[in-house]
Design a protein around this nucleic acid. Sequence first.
DNA 1: CTCTCATTCAAACGTCCGTTTGAACTATGC
DNA 2: GCATAGTTCAAACGGACGTTTGAATGAGAG
Lengths: 226, 226
Amino acid sequence: MPERAVAGGKENSVETPVESTRERLLNIAEQRFGEGGYEGTSLRAITVAAAANIAAVNYHFGSKEALLRAAVARAMAPVNTERRRRLDQLEAKGDPSAEQLIRAFIEPGLDLVLRRGERGPVVARFIGRVAFDPSQRIRELYAAESDPVEARYLAALQIALPRAAPESVAFGYVNMLGLLALHQSQALTRAPGLEPADIDGGEDPGKLAENLIAFLVAAFDRGLRA
Amino acid sequence: MPERAVAGGKENSVETPVESTRERLLNIAEQRFGEGGYEGTSLRAITVAAAANIAAVNYHFGSKEALLRAAVARAMAPVNTERRRRLDQLEAKGDPSAEQLIRAFIEPGLDLVLRRGERGPVVARFIGRVAFDPSQRIRELYAAESDPVEARYLAALQIALPRAAPESVAFGYVNMLGLLALHQSQALTRAPGLEPADIDGGEDPGKLAENLIAFLVAAFDRGLRA
DNA sequence: CTCTCATTCAAACGTCCGTTTGAACTATGC
DNA sequence: GCATAGTTCAAACGGACGTTTGAATGAGAG
Protein backbone atom coordinates (compact mmCIF):
# COMPACT_ATOMS: atom_id res chain seq x y z
CA MET A 1 0.00 0.00 0.00
CA PRO A 2 1.19 3.52 -0.71
CA GLU A 3 1.49 6.55 1.55
CA ARG A 4 -1.00 6.43 4.42
CA ALA A 5 -2.34 2.95 4.80
CA VAL A 6 -5.43 2.02 6.82
CA ALA A 7 -3.59 -0.56 8.85
CA GLY A 8 -5.41 -2.30 11.68
CA GLY A 9 -3.61 -0.10 14.21
CA LYS A 10 -5.26 2.03 16.81
CA GLU A 11 -4.48 5.43 15.28
CA ASN A 12 -7.14 5.24 12.58
CA SER A 13 -9.86 3.93 14.83
CA VAL A 14 -9.66 7.09 16.93
CA GLU A 15 -8.63 9.84 14.61
CA THR A 16 -10.18 10.57 11.25
CA PRO A 17 -9.79 7.44 9.17
CA VAL A 18 -7.60 7.98 6.15
CA GLU A 19 -9.44 7.27 2.94
CA SER A 20 -7.71 5.38 0.19
CA THR A 21 -7.62 6.82 -3.31
CA ARG A 22 -10.20 4.26 -4.31
CA GLU A 23 -12.56 5.33 -1.54
CA ARG A 24 -12.06 9.01 -2.25
CA LEU A 25 -12.89 8.43 -5.89
CA LEU A 26 -16.08 6.58 -4.99
CA ASN A 27 -17.11 9.26 -2.52
CA ILE A 28 -16.56 12.14 -4.93
CA ALA A 29 -18.11 10.19 -7.79
CA GLU A 30 -21.27 9.74 -5.72
CA GLN A 31 -21.39 13.44 -5.07
CA ARG A 32 -20.66 14.70 -8.58
CA PHE A 33 -22.70 12.11 -10.47
CA GLY A 34 -25.57 12.93 -8.14
CA GLU A 35 -25.28 16.64 -8.87
CA GLY A 36 -24.60 16.70 -12.59
CA GLY A 37 -25.60 13.29 -13.87
CA TYR A 38 -23.32 10.82 -15.61
CA GLU A 39 -22.86 12.67 -18.88
CA GLY A 40 -22.62 16.02 -17.15
CA THR A 41 -19.73 15.00 -14.91
CA SER A 42 -16.19 14.59 -16.22
CA LEU A 43 -13.55 12.29 -14.82
CA ARG A 44 -11.29 15.29 -14.52
CA ALA A 45 -13.76 17.07 -12.24
CA ILE A 46 -13.96 13.96 -10.09
CA THR A 47 -10.23 13.32 -9.88
CA VAL A 48 -9.42 16.94 -9.11
CA ALA A 49 -11.96 17.02 -6.27
CA ALA A 50 -10.67 13.68 -4.98
CA ALA A 51 -7.06 14.89 -5.15
CA ALA A 52 -6.24 11.95 -7.33
CA ASN A 53 -4.53 11.53 -10.66
CA ILE A 54 -6.87 11.07 -13.59
CA ALA A 55 -5.22 7.76 -14.44
CA ALA A 56 -6.24 6.45 -11.04
CA VAL A 57 -9.79 5.95 -12.30
CA ASN A 58 -8.73 3.57 -15.01
CA TYR A 59 -6.28 1.87 -12.68
CA HIS A 60 -8.80 1.18 -9.92
CA PHE A 61 -11.96 0.74 -11.96
CA GLY A 62 -11.10 0.49 -15.65
CA SER A 63 -13.35 3.16 -17.11
CA LYS A 64 -15.76 5.94 -16.27
CA GLU A 65 -18.72 3.62 -16.60
CA ALA A 66 -17.06 1.02 -14.37
CA LEU A 67 -16.53 3.72 -11.74
CA LEU A 68 -20.23 4.48 -11.87
CA ARG A 69 -21.07 0.81 -11.61
CA ALA A 70 -18.84 0.39 -8.56
CA ALA A 71 -20.36 3.46 -6.92
CA VAL A 72 -23.89 2.20 -7.56
CA ALA A 73 -23.05 -1.22 -6.18
CA ARG A 74 -21.51 0.22 -3.03
CA ALA A 75 -24.38 2.64 -2.46
CA MET A 76 -27.12 0.11 -3.07
CA ALA A 77 -25.64 -2.76 -1.08
CA PRO A 78 -26.85 -1.68 2.39
CA VAL A 79 -30.24 -0.68 1.00
CA ASN A 80 -30.74 -4.01 -0.70
CA THR A 81 -29.58 -5.87 2.39
CA GLU A 82 -31.98 -4.05 4.65
CA ARG A 83 -34.86 -4.52 2.24
CA ARG A 84 -34.16 -8.22 2.02
CA ARG A 85 -33.90 -8.52 5.80
CA ARG A 86 -37.18 -6.75 6.41
CA LEU A 87 -39.04 -8.67 3.76
CA ASP A 88 -37.76 -11.96 5.17
CA GLN A 89 -38.89 -10.88 8.59
CA LEU A 90 -42.35 -9.89 7.38
CA GLU A 91 -42.91 -13.06 5.40
CA ALA A 92 -41.84 -15.17 8.37
CA LYS A 93 -44.77 -13.77 10.33
CA GLY A 94 -47.35 -14.51 7.67
CA ASP A 95 -48.78 -12.57 4.76
CA PRO A 96 -47.65 -8.96 5.10
CA SER A 97 -50.02 -6.08 4.43
CA ALA A 98 -49.50 -3.56 1.67
CA GLU A 99 -48.57 -0.92 4.22
CA GLN A 100 -45.98 -3.16 5.82
CA LEU A 101 -44.47 -3.89 2.43
CA ILE A 102 -44.42 -0.27 1.36
CA ARG A 103 -42.83 0.74 4.63
CA ALA A 104 -40.21 -1.99 4.41
CA PHE A 105 -39.35 -0.83 0.90
CA ILE A 106 -39.38 2.93 1.37
CA GLU A 107 -37.67 3.28 4.73
CA PRO A 108 -34.36 1.69 3.74
CA GLY A 109 -34.29 4.03 0.78
CA LEU A 110 -34.98 7.19 2.73
CA ASP A 111 -34.14 6.49 6.36
CA LEU A 112 -30.94 4.54 6.01
CA VAL A 113 -29.70 7.00 3.52
CA LEU A 114 -30.93 10.29 4.88
CA ARG A 115 -29.92 9.82 8.49
CA ARG A 116 -26.25 9.03 8.89
CA GLY A 117 -24.01 12.07 8.92
CA GLU A 118 -23.17 14.38 6.09
CA ARG A 119 -22.95 11.76 3.38
CA GLY A 120 -26.50 10.46 3.66
CA PRO A 121 -28.15 13.00 1.39
CA VAL A 122 -25.28 12.69 -1.07
CA VAL A 123 -25.77 8.95 -1.40
CA ALA A 124 -29.53 9.37 -1.65
CA ARG A 125 -29.28 11.90 -4.43
CA PHE A 126 -26.80 9.75 -6.28
CA ILE A 127 -29.07 6.71 -6.18
CA GLY A 128 -32.15 8.67 -7.10
CA ARG A 129 -30.51 10.35 -10.03
CA VAL A 130 -28.90 7.27 -11.50
CA ALA A 131 -32.14 5.32 -11.24
CA PHE A 132 -33.79 7.72 -13.68
CA ASP A 133 -30.86 8.98 -15.67
CA PRO A 134 -31.79 10.25 -19.16
CA SER A 135 -29.65 7.55 -20.75
CA GLN A 136 -31.28 4.16 -20.98
CA ARG A 137 -27.85 2.60 -20.74
CA ILE A 138 -27.30 4.09 -17.29
CA ARG A 139 -30.76 3.11 -16.11
CA GLU A 140 -30.09 -0.47 -17.14
CA LEU A 141 -26.76 -0.38 -15.37
CA TYR A 142 -28.58 0.71 -12.25
CA ALA A 143 -31.29 -1.92 -12.64
CA ALA A 144 -28.63 -4.61 -12.79
CA GLU A 145 -27.46 -3.61 -9.31
CA SER A 146 -30.82 -3.37 -7.63
CA ASP A 147 -33.15 -5.86 -9.25
CA PRO A 148 -33.11 -9.02 -7.15
CA VAL A 149 -34.92 -7.81 -4.05
CA GLU A 150 -37.30 -5.46 -5.75
CA ALA A 151 -39.00 -8.18 -7.75
CA ARG A 152 -39.88 -9.95 -4.50
CA TYR A 153 -41.64 -6.83 -3.24
CA LEU A 154 -43.77 -6.64 -6.36
CA ALA A 155 -44.80 -10.27 -5.96
CA ALA A 156 -45.62 -9.73 -2.30
CA LEU A 157 -47.70 -6.67 -3.15
CA GLN A 158 -49.70 -8.68 -5.67
CA ILE A 159 -50.61 -11.10 -2.89
CA ALA A 160 -51.34 -8.35 -0.36
CA LEU A 161 -53.72 -6.65 -2.79
CA PRO A 162 -55.81 -9.49 -4.25
CA ARG A 163 -58.69 -7.20 -5.17
CA ALA A 164 -56.56 -5.12 -7.53
CA ALA A 165 -55.64 -6.36 -10.98
CA PRO A 166 -52.01 -7.51 -11.30
CA GLU A 167 -51.28 -4.81 -13.87
CA SER A 168 -52.68 -2.23 -11.50
CA VAL A 169 -50.42 -3.37 -8.70
CA ALA A 170 -47.50 -3.20 -11.10
CA PHE A 171 -48.59 0.30 -12.01
CA GLY A 172 -48.60 1.32 -8.36
CA TYR A 173 -45.30 -0.40 -7.85
CA VAL A 174 -43.48 1.58 -10.54
CA ASN A 175 -45.06 4.74 -9.19
CA MET A 176 -43.56 3.87 -5.83
CA LEU A 177 -40.14 3.35 -7.41
CA GLY A 178 -40.39 6.65 -9.20
CA LEU A 179 -41.57 8.71 -6.26
CA LEU A 180 -38.92 7.23 -4.01
CA ALA A 181 -36.20 8.06 -6.52
CA LEU A 182 -37.49 11.58 -6.95
CA HIS A 183 -37.49 12.22 -3.23
CA GLN A 184 -34.09 10.63 -2.87
CA SER A 185 -32.69 12.88 -5.55
CA GLN A 186 -34.34 15.88 -3.92
CA ALA A 187 -35.52 17.03 -7.32
CA LEU A 188 -39.01 17.67 -5.97
CA THR A 189 -37.97 20.39 -3.56
CA ARG A 190 -37.89 22.99 -6.30
CA ALA A 191 -41.51 23.25 -7.27
CA PRO A 192 -42.86 26.66 -8.24
CA GLY A 193 -43.30 28.90 -5.24
CA LEU A 194 -42.44 26.23 -2.74
CA GLU A 195 -39.70 26.13 -0.16
CA PRO A 196 -37.98 22.84 0.55
CA ALA A 197 -39.34 22.78 4.08
CA ASP A 198 -42.86 22.74 2.70
CA ILE A 199 -42.29 19.35 1.21
CA ASP A 200 -39.86 17.28 3.16
CA GLY A 201 -41.53 17.93 6.46
CA GLY A 202 -39.00 20.46 7.71
CA GLU A 203 -35.92 19.44 9.63
CA ASP A 204 -36.96 15.91 10.40
CA PRO A 205 -36.09 13.61 7.52
CA GLY A 206 -38.17 10.88 9.09
CA LYS A 207 -41.33 12.83 8.38
CA LEU A 208 -40.65 12.65 4.67
CA ALA A 209 -40.71 8.86 4.88
CA GLU A 210 -43.97 8.92 6.85
CA ASN A 211 -45.57 11.34 4.41
CA LEU A 212 -44.52 9.31 1.41
CA ILE A 213 -45.65 6.04 2.97
CA ALA A 214 -49.06 7.45 3.85
CA PHE A 215 -49.39 8.87 0.35
CA LEU A 216 -48.56 5.54 -1.27
CA VAL A 217 -50.65 3.41 1.08
CA ALA A 218 -53.73 5.45 0.27
CA ALA A 219 -53.02 5.23 -3.44
CA PHE A 220 -52.44 1.47 -3.31
CA ASP A 221 -55.48 0.78 -1.17
CA ARG A 222 -58.00 2.87 -3.06
CA GLY A 223 -56.41 4.13 -6.25
CA LEU A 224 -55.93 0.90 -8.21
CA ARG A 225 -58.30 -0.68 -10.70
CA ALA A 226 -60.00 -3.88 -9.73
CA MET B 1 -36.67 33.04 -47.67
CA PRO B 2 -34.33 30.42 -49.05
CA GLU B 3 -35.00 27.26 -51.03
CA ARG B 4 -38.47 25.84 -50.34
CA ALA B 5 -40.61 28.42 -48.65
CA VAL B 6 -43.90 27.66 -46.93
CA ALA B 7 -45.77 30.22 -48.93
CA GLY B 8 -49.51 30.52 -48.55
CA GLY B 9 -49.99 28.57 -51.76
CA LYS B 10 -52.06 25.45 -52.13
CA GLU B 11 -49.26 22.97 -52.72
CA ASN B 12 -48.20 22.77 -49.10
CA SER B 13 -51.69 22.48 -47.71
CA VAL B 14 -52.26 19.26 -49.64
CA GLU B 15 -48.91 17.56 -49.90
CA THR B 16 -46.49 16.99 -47.09
CA PRO B 17 -45.65 20.41 -45.69
CA VAL B 18 -42.01 21.29 -46.09
CA GLU B 19 -40.32 21.90 -42.78
CA SER B 20 -37.97 24.79 -42.46
CA THR B 21 -34.50 24.22 -41.09
CA ARG B 22 -35.61 25.83 -37.87
CA GLU B 23 -38.54 23.45 -37.51
CA ARG B 24 -36.45 20.42 -38.37
CA LEU B 25 -33.93 21.40 -35.73
CA LEU B 26 -36.64 21.78 -33.11
CA ASN B 27 -38.22 18.44 -34.03
CA ILE B 28 -34.96 16.52 -33.92
CA ALA B 29 -33.86 18.34 -30.78
CA GLU B 30 -37.06 17.20 -29.05
CA GLN B 31 -36.36 13.65 -30.06
CA ARG B 32 -32.68 13.49 -29.19
CA PHE B 33 -32.82 15.52 -25.99
CA GLY B 34 -35.67 13.28 -24.90
CA GLU B 35 -33.65 10.15 -25.57
CA GLY B 36 -30.21 11.10 -24.30
CA GLY B 37 -30.73 14.13 -22.10
CA TYR B 38 -29.19 17.54 -22.63
CA GLU B 39 -25.60 16.69 -21.79
CA GLY B 40 -25.80 13.36 -23.55
CA THR B 41 -26.86 14.85 -26.88
CA SER B 42 -24.44 16.75 -29.14
CA LEU B 43 -25.33 19.48 -31.56
CA ARG B 44 -23.62 17.47 -34.24
CA ALA B 45 -25.93 14.52 -33.68
CA ILE B 46 -28.91 16.84 -33.92
CA THR B 47 -27.78 18.69 -37.02
CA VAL B 48 -26.83 15.51 -38.86
CA ALA B 49 -30.23 13.98 -38.15
CA ALA B 50 -31.94 17.21 -39.16
CA ALA B 51 -29.90 17.41 -42.38
CA ALA B 52 -28.75 20.83 -41.34
CA ASN B 53 -25.39 22.49 -41.03
CA ILE B 54 -24.07 22.71 -37.51
CA ALA B 55 -23.80 26.48 -37.79
CA ALA B 56 -27.55 26.62 -38.34
CA VAL B 57 -28.12 26.08 -34.64
CA ASN B 58 -26.23 29.18 -33.68
CA TYR B 59 -27.76 31.10 -36.54
CA HIS B 60 -31.37 30.29 -35.65
CA PHE B 61 -31.10 30.01 -31.87
CA GLY B 62 -27.74 31.29 -30.70
CA SER B 63 -26.51 28.36 -28.66
CA LYS B 64 -27.24 24.79 -27.63
CA GLU B 65 -28.99 25.95 -24.49
CA ALA B 66 -31.08 28.44 -26.45
CA LEU B 67 -32.14 25.62 -28.77
CA LEU B 68 -33.28 23.64 -25.76
CA ARG B 69 -35.13 26.65 -24.40
CA ALA B 70 -36.93 27.19 -27.69
CA ALA B 71 -37.87 23.50 -27.89
CA VAL B 72 -39.22 23.54 -24.33
CA ALA B 73 -41.22 26.67 -25.00
CA ARG B 74 -42.76 25.25 -28.16
CA ALA B 75 -43.56 21.91 -26.55
CA MET B 76 -45.07 23.37 -23.40
CA ALA B 77 -47.15 26.09 -25.03
CA PRO B 78 -50.19 23.96 -25.96
CA VAL B 79 -50.05 22.13 -22.64
CA ASN B 80 -50.00 25.35 -20.66
CA THR B 81 -52.77 26.81 -22.77
CA GLU B 82 -55.01 23.81 -22.27
CA ARG B 83 -54.35 23.73 -18.54
CA ARG B 84 -55.18 27.39 -18.25
CA ARG B 85 -58.34 26.96 -20.29
CA ARG B 86 -59.59 24.05 -18.22
CA LEU B 87 -58.78 25.71 -14.92
CA ASP B 88 -60.59 28.86 -15.99
CA GLN B 89 -63.57 26.77 -16.97
CA LEU B 90 -63.61 24.88 -13.67
CA GLU B 91 -63.30 27.99 -11.55
CA ALA B 92 -66.10 29.68 -13.47
CA LYS B 93 -68.45 26.95 -12.28
CA GLY B 94 -67.53 27.28 -8.63
CA ASP B 95 -64.97 25.62 -6.38
CA PRO B 96 -63.54 22.66 -8.27
CA SER B 97 -62.93 19.33 -6.56
CA ALA B 98 -59.51 17.80 -6.14
CA GLU B 99 -60.34 15.19 -8.75
CA GLN B 100 -61.43 17.80 -11.26
CA LEU B 101 -58.20 19.72 -10.69
CA ILE B 102 -56.01 16.66 -10.96
CA ARG B 103 -57.75 15.61 -14.14
CA ALA B 104 -57.45 19.07 -15.65
CA PHE B 105 -53.75 19.06 -14.89
CA ILE B 106 -52.84 15.51 -15.88
CA GLU B 107 -54.83 15.10 -19.07
CA PRO B 108 -53.20 17.92 -21.03
CA GLY B 109 -49.85 16.44 -20.10
CA LEU B 110 -50.67 12.90 -21.17
CA ASP B 111 -53.62 13.08 -23.53
CA LEU B 112 -52.71 16.06 -25.64
CA VAL B 113 -49.22 14.79 -25.97
CA LEU B 114 -49.70 11.06 -26.31
CA ARG B 115 -52.49 11.06 -28.82
CA ARG B 116 -51.64 13.03 -31.93
CA GLY B 117 -49.70 11.07 -34.49
CA GLU B 118 -46.14 9.89 -34.31
CA ARG B 119 -44.70 12.90 -32.59
CA GLY B 120 -46.84 12.76 -29.46
CA PRO B 121 -44.70 10.32 -27.48
CA VAL B 122 -41.57 12.14 -28.62
CA VAL B 123 -42.82 15.43 -27.24
CA ALA B 124 -43.99 13.78 -24.04
CA ARG B 125 -40.67 12.13 -23.41
CA PHE B 126 -38.85 15.36 -24.11
CA ILE B 127 -40.94 17.30 -21.62
CA GLY B 128 -40.73 14.62 -18.98
CA ARG B 129 -36.99 14.28 -19.26
CA VAL B 130 -36.17 17.96 -19.23
CA ALA B 131 -38.41 18.55 -16.22
CA PHE B 132 -36.19 16.29 -14.12
CA ASP B 133 -32.87 16.58 -15.87
CA PRO B 134 -29.88 15.83 -13.63
CA SER B 135 -28.60 19.36 -14.06
CA GLN B 136 -30.26 21.94 -11.85
CA ARG B 137 -29.59 24.52 -14.55
CA ILE B 138 -31.76 22.62 -17.03
CA ARG B 139 -34.52 22.05 -14.50
CA GLU B 140 -34.63 25.78 -13.78
CA LEU B 141 -34.72 26.50 -17.50
CA TYR B 142 -37.73 24.22 -17.75
CA ALA B 143 -39.42 25.74 -14.71
CA ALA B 144 -39.14 29.16 -16.30
CA GLU B 145 -41.26 27.94 -19.23
CA SER B 146 -43.96 26.17 -17.28
CA ASP B 147 -44.44 27.95 -14.00
CA PRO B 148 -47.31 30.41 -14.41
CA VAL B 149 -50.24 28.02 -14.68
CA GLU B 150 -48.93 25.39 -12.32
CA ALA B 151 -48.91 27.69 -9.32
CA ARG B 152 -52.62 28.31 -9.82
CA TYR B 153 -53.30 24.59 -9.63
CA LEU B 154 -51.49 24.31 -6.33
CA ALA B 155 -53.52 27.18 -4.89
CA ALA B 156 -56.75 25.63 -6.13
CA LEU B 157 -55.81 22.28 -4.61
CA GLN B 158 -55.21 23.94 -1.25
CA ILE B 159 -58.78 25.23 -1.36
CA ALA B 160 -60.24 21.95 -2.57
CA LEU B 161 -58.57 20.06 0.28
CA PRO B 162 -59.18 22.22 3.35
CA ARG B 163 -58.78 19.31 5.76
CA ALA B 164 -55.20 18.66 4.71
CA ALA B 165 -52.34 20.86 5.90
CA PRO B 166 -51.01 23.25 3.24
CA GLU B 167 -47.59 21.58 3.36
CA SER B 168 -49.25 18.24 2.78
CA VAL B 169 -51.10 19.49 -0.25
CA ALA B 170 -47.81 20.88 -1.56
CA PHE B 171 -46.26 17.48 -0.93
CA GLY B 172 -48.98 15.78 -2.94
CA TYR B 173 -48.66 18.41 -5.62
CA VAL B 174 -44.96 17.81 -6.23
CA ASN B 175 -45.64 14.09 -6.23
CA MET B 176 -48.15 14.70 -8.98
CA LEU B 177 -45.61 16.73 -10.97
CA GLY B 178 -43.03 13.99 -10.57
CA LEU B 179 -45.27 11.08 -11.48
CA LEU B 180 -46.61 12.89 -14.51
CA ALA B 181 -43.09 13.63 -15.72
CA LEU B 182 -42.01 10.04 -15.17
CA HIS B 183 -44.92 8.67 -17.15
CA GLN B 184 -44.40 11.26 -19.87
CA SER B 185 -40.78 10.27 -20.19
CA GLN B 186 -41.77 6.60 -20.24
CA ALA B 187 -38.98 5.84 -17.79
CA LEU B 188 -41.31 3.75 -15.65
CA THR B 189 -41.98 1.13 -18.30
CA ARG B 190 -38.72 -0.63 -17.55
CA ALA B 191 -39.29 -1.92 -14.06
CA PRO B 192 -37.77 -5.27 -13.17
CA GLY B 193 -39.67 -8.14 -14.75
CA LEU B 194 -42.39 -5.94 -16.15
CA GLU B 195 -43.48 -5.43 -19.69
CA PRO B 196 -44.55 -2.00 -20.84
CA ALA B 197 -48.09 -3.18 -21.41
CA ASP B 198 -48.37 -4.08 -17.74
CA ILE B 199 -48.08 -0.45 -16.79
CA ASP B 200 -49.46 1.87 -19.37
CA GLY B 201 -52.68 -0.05 -19.75
CA GLY B 202 -51.82 -1.70 -23.02
CA GLU B 203 -52.52 -0.08 -26.34
CA ASP B 204 -54.85 2.61 -25.12
CA PRO B 205 -52.87 5.63 -23.95
CA GLY B 206 -56.01 7.05 -22.41
CA LYS B 207 -56.02 4.32 -19.81
CA LEU B 208 -52.69 5.52 -18.50
CA ALA B 209 -54.23 8.90 -17.76
CA GLU B 210 -57.20 7.28 -16.01
CA ASN B 211 -54.98 5.03 -13.95
CA LEU B 212 -52.73 7.88 -12.91
CA ILE B 213 -55.64 10.14 -12.05
CA ALA B 214 -57.28 7.46 -9.92
CA PHE B 215 -53.98 6.79 -8.20
CA LEU B 216 -53.44 10.45 -7.41
CA VAL B 217 -57.02 11.17 -6.36
CA ALA B 218 -56.89 8.39 -3.79
CA ALA B 219 -53.56 9.63 -2.50
CA PHE B 220 -54.74 13.23 -2.26
CA ASP B 221 -58.03 12.33 -0.62
CA ARG B 222 -56.76 9.95 2.00
CA GLY B 223 -52.96 10.03 1.99
CA LEU B 224 -52.24 13.55 3.24
CA ARG B 225 -51.67 14.69 6.81
CA ALA B 226 -54.33 16.79 8.45
C1' DC C 1 -30.30 43.17 -64.07
C1' DT C 2 -28.67 44.72 -59.60
C1' DC C 3 -28.81 45.26 -55.04
C1' DT C 4 -30.06 43.44 -50.58
C1' DC C 5 -30.54 40.51 -47.02
C1' DA C 6 -31.61 36.15 -45.06
C1' DT C 7 -29.86 31.63 -45.01
C1' DT C 8 -26.59 27.82 -45.75
C1' DC C 9 -22.11 25.97 -46.02
C1' DA C 10 -17.27 23.98 -45.29
C1' DA C 11 -13.75 24.75 -42.41
C1' DA C 12 -11.44 25.91 -38.56
C1' DC C 13 -11.20 27.70 -33.55
C1' DG C 14 -9.70 26.42 -28.84
C1' DT C 15 -11.18 23.45 -25.21
C1' DC C 16 -12.40 19.47 -22.96
C1' DC C 17 -13.30 14.61 -23.18
C1' DG C 18 -12.07 9.43 -21.78
C1' DT C 19 -8.23 6.70 -22.22
C1' DT C 20 -3.35 5.15 -22.48
C1' DT C 21 1.52 5.16 -21.74
C1' DG C 22 5.78 4.49 -19.35
C1' DA C 23 8.42 6.04 -15.80
C1' DA C 24 8.69 7.07 -10.77
C1' DC C 25 7.57 5.97 -6.24
C1' DT C 26 6.51 2.96 -2.02
C1' DA C 27 5.84 -0.73 1.05
C1' DT C 28 6.64 -5.49 1.69
C1' DG C 29 8.94 -10.29 1.25
C1' DC C 30 13.13 -12.50 0.75
C1' DG D 1 20.63 -5.47 0.66
C1' DC D 2 17.64 -6.52 -3.69
C1' DA D 3 13.68 -7.87 -6.17
C1' DT D 4 8.74 -7.44 -6.54
C1' DA D 5 4.21 -6.03 -6.87
C1' DG D 6 0.97 -2.28 -6.02
C1' DT D 7 0.13 2.45 -6.71
C1' DT D 8 0.74 7.24 -8.35
C1' DC D 9 2.25 10.50 -11.61
C1' DA D 10 2.91 13.91 -15.63
C1' DA D 11 2.19 13.81 -20.19
C1' DA D 12 0.30 12.77 -24.28
C1' DC D 13 -3.23 10.26 -27.44
C1' DG D 14 -6.98 10.88 -30.88
C1' DG D 15 -11.40 12.44 -31.02
C1' DA D 16 -15.59 15.01 -30.00
C1' DC D 17 -17.39 19.10 -28.15
C1' DG D 18 -19.82 24.04 -28.71
C1' DT D 19 -18.82 27.98 -31.12
C1' DT D 20 -17.14 31.18 -34.76
C1' DT D 21 -15.79 32.77 -39.23
C1' DG D 22 -16.23 34.31 -43.90
C1' DA D 23 -17.47 33.08 -48.19
C1' DA D 24 -21.20 31.08 -51.19
C1' DT D 25 -26.06 30.69 -52.31
C1' DG D 26 -30.71 31.90 -52.88
C1' DA D 27 -35.04 34.58 -53.52
C1' DG D 28 -37.40 39.07 -53.63
C1' DA D 29 -37.43 44.38 -54.33
C1' DG D 30 -36.25 48.20 -57.02
